[in-house]
């Protein structure tokens, strides 16, 4: 039997406290409207969200794990990119 699967969708949900949408996981759905309905049923059952974004997985371009060295290692020895070289006045708190 020819069994076609629905496309995969990536689900992003913004929680009540959150300012940005967070990736929750993925699910199958026939189209974008159904993906939102499915996301509502799969990921917001315990009051998690106030807003849902769905993106078909094929539209996401991901970096390759094989390029890890060239992409991320060069940042390792550049500590001056962190703002840790300033002397903060004592009066300044919560930093």
């Amino acid at each position: 039997m020819d069994k076609k699967n629905w496309p995969l969708w990536e689900i992003f949900i913004r929680s009540k406290q959150g300012l940005s949408h967070k990736h929750m996981g993925s699910l199958h759905a026939a189209d974008e409207e159904m993906a939102i309905q499915n996301a509502r049923d799969v990921y917001t059952r315990r009051n998690e969200g106030v807003s849902i974004w769905v993106v078909e997985s094929k539209h996401i371009t991901a970096s390759s794990p094989a390029e890890k060295d060239s992409l991320y290692d060069p940042a390792n020895d550049k500590v001056y990119r962190h703002p840790t070289f300033y002397n903060l006045p004592d009066e300044l708190t919560h930093i």
Binding site: W6, H28, N38, D41, V42
Partner: peptide, 11 residues
Amino acid sequence: PILEQDMAVTN
């Protein structure tokens, strides 16, 4: 028929 619909219907 599929996980997502299983959950939708039982909801």
